[in-house]
Design a protein around this nucleic acid. Structure first.
Length: 186
DNA sequence: TGCCGGATCCTG
DNA sequence: AGGATCCGGCAA
């Protein structure tokens, strides 16, 4: 396996826009049943904090979004539409309520299913709500910088599925690797 | 306590 | 275009 360096707390404890773009091209790693599943992150969305009307944190801290208000470098995993999970990484300082949604992966190792979309990638990586609040600086679910990461060209577009958020729906907070075939939507 | 609306995905 | 399918959040 290619050499990789696990991302630690200081990586996540930065401006959400910066973290979102820096996550493109990194490896999401999950050890499950003695096997290491790896996907390369090719698409993300930034949710900037409680002032961001599209963010789950915009209505204040609740039982569901509590992890978003916790320390950076933890997984915020929630159930969407009753049947899929979505995974975010918490960013910035505690109480900020910011996170980056992982929207698509390119398969690298032991990926049995499709990974184009936030619900599909969680299924393929076997990530569910039991991992909500999981510390991403641990050894079983983490994100790592591959030693050989190539330079990526980044596209910025409006986020998907947040039409309810008024002007916030139009802000270009979805980032993906230009021309990557595993991006969920053009 | 009941109801409504999802940061989705699949099928027709 | 519409349905599946669960649950958190808020109104009552």
């Amino acid at each position: 396996m290619t050499n990789m360096q696990k991302l630690l707390r200081p990586f996540y404890d930065r401006a959400t826009l910066t973290v979102a773009k820096d996550l493109l091209g990194t490896y999401l790693v999950h050890d499950v049943a003695g096997e290491r599943r790896i996907g390369r992150i090719v698409e993300v969305e930034a949710y900037l904090g409680s002032h961001d009307r599209a963010s789950h944190s915009s209505k204040g801290r609740t039982a569901r979004n509590a992890v978003m208000f916790g320390p950076p470098g933890h997984a915020y995993v929630y159930l969407i539409y009753g049947m899929y999970c979505c995974m975010n990484v918490v960013t910035e300082a505690q109480d900020h309520g910011a996170a980056v949604l992982v929207r698509a992966l390119a398969p690298v190792a032991n990926i049995p299913l499709r990974t184009q979309g936030p619900g599909l990638l969680c299924k393929a990586m076997q990530i569910d709500r039991r991992l909500n609040g999981h510390d991403l600086t641990g050894d079983t679910l983490f994100i790592a910088m591959p030693a050989d990461r190539p330079a990526v060209r980044i596209a910025a577009r409006p986020r998907i599925g947040v039409a309810y958020a008024g002007e916030w729906a139009e802000k270009p907070l979805r980032f993906y690797i230009q021309d990557d075939p595993f991006v969920s939507r053009k």
